[in-house]
Amino acid sequence: MLLNWDLISGAVVLGIFTGGIYALMASGLTLTFGVMDVINVAQGALVILGAYLSYAVEQHLHIDIFLSLLITMPAMFLIGMLLEVAFIRPLKHERTVFSILVTFAIALVIEGILGKIFTTNFVQLGANAWYVNQSFKIGGTYVGYIYLFGFVLAAVLLAGLYLLLYRTRFGFALRATVENRTAAQLIGIDVERVSAITFGIGVSLAAAGGMAFGATQTFDPGSHYDLISRLLAIIILGGMGSLAGAMIASIFMLVVFNVTSVVYSPTWGTVVFFVLLSVVLLVRPQGFLGRAEARRQ
């Protein structure tokens, strides 16, 4: 079998760029698990909610979808805080298990509301924007500008989040909460406030991820089902609670899928990824940058 290196390099580049977008969507999921021990299976629905908010801003205010984030991210931050106070905070016992049920219910409610407001027709963001249709040459293939811009957006926001975590007082409080919630409370950190803000940040990152997702493919209120399964696979592979792990795992997943697809078959793309996921978890059950490592990063 002759290998077409142009095709493979194109698949790798696309995998890296698309992986960046997935990392943005998964970052909120891994962050809330790290801080709150909450597995937010509504993250996929929140991503789709973010995409629909950008769609509404684009359609009604005629604002570019990237600029729409100036409206949708703060709005989603508030929604996230509200969700935390109303539904997550009351979970005092068996938080991880119950959070799956509660956030699944939230996902279903979001899907239902979106279906009522926007109908279940598929839509796409920025269908006529130049960067969605135009592309640039890299190696022997072309890549759409939207993938590059989506990747840059992901890199900027995740770098901003890193600075927030490691260069601010809030970040110190947040990391202390990750290390030991009770000890953090004892030294005077308001862990409930930290949790609410963290959940808000996670949800506002979903807004950005949703915009990038919605600009690269059509979506409807039910698109979150496929999405959440991929996001969960990413954070398990990357290491629950690790931001850097989510980034590496996202890129790993997309590159493996794309390269397997172009070299052999798309059917095997998913299979190969999950085989590799199983192998990694056998060797490193905590994922690439599992929790213990993540806390030291």
Binding site: M1, N4, D6, L7, G10, A11, L14, G15, T18, Y22, T141, Q217, D226, S229, R230, M253, L254, F257, N258, S261, V262, V263, Y264, S265, P266, T267, W268, G269, T270
Partner: peptide, 26 residues
């Protein structure tokens, strides 16, 4: 390579359809 009787098959749960397009375009 990997095609089913000369047809590229992609699964419904593909995370990215771009790779299929790339393969056809080439």
């Amino acid at each position: 390579a990997g095609s089913s009787h000369g047809v590229i098959i992609w699964p419904a749960e593909s995370p990215d359809i771009q790779s299929v397009a790339l393969k056809i375009a080439q």
